[in-house]
């Protein structure tokens, strides 16, 4: 698992990388929750540009981030989602729960 994050004008951007499966999901969930708690951003942007694969563990990552952002009355946005992750998000209905920007490249 590898990720970078930065805060700008109350917007926290978290850039995820690689393949998100059960093997690394727990780490992602905890790290993202930690960042949100530390910075209490108005908006959290999960950047999927460098994510090449997700399975249903990736859905849990998004849902947990959504829960953390709801608790502080902030908003969650997903960006840069490639074709395979997008199919998984659509099949699970996640695309109806969170705002998705710049989908399928």
């Amino acid at each position: 698992m590898q990720f970078t994050s930065f805060l700008e004008n109350g917007h926290l951007t978290v850039a995820l990388t690689g393949e998100i499966d059960h093997h690394c999901a727990k780490n992602y969930i905890q790290s993202i929750a930690g960042k949100i708690e530390a910075y209490t951003p108005d908006v959290c942007i999960l950047d999927f540009q460098d994510v090449t694969f997700v399975d249903s563990s990736g859905i849990a990552v998004v849902i947990n981030a959504l829960r953390s952002m709801s608790q502080i009355e902030g908003k969650l946005v997903l960006t840069g989602i490639c074709a395979q992750p997008m199919r998984v998000f659509r099949a699970s209905g996640i695309d109806k729960l969170v705002e998705i920007k710049e989908a399928v490249r």
């Binding site: 059960h22 999901a25 727990k26 969930i29 399975d55 249903s56 563990s57 859905i59 849990a60 849902i63 947990n64 998984v88 099949a91 699970s92």
Partner: peptide, 11 residues
């Protein structure tokens, strides 16, 4: 737990 989504079989 909360790190599972329950969407495996659906997918």
């Amino acid at each position: 737990g909360s790190d599972r989504s329950g969407m495996g079989f659906t997918i």
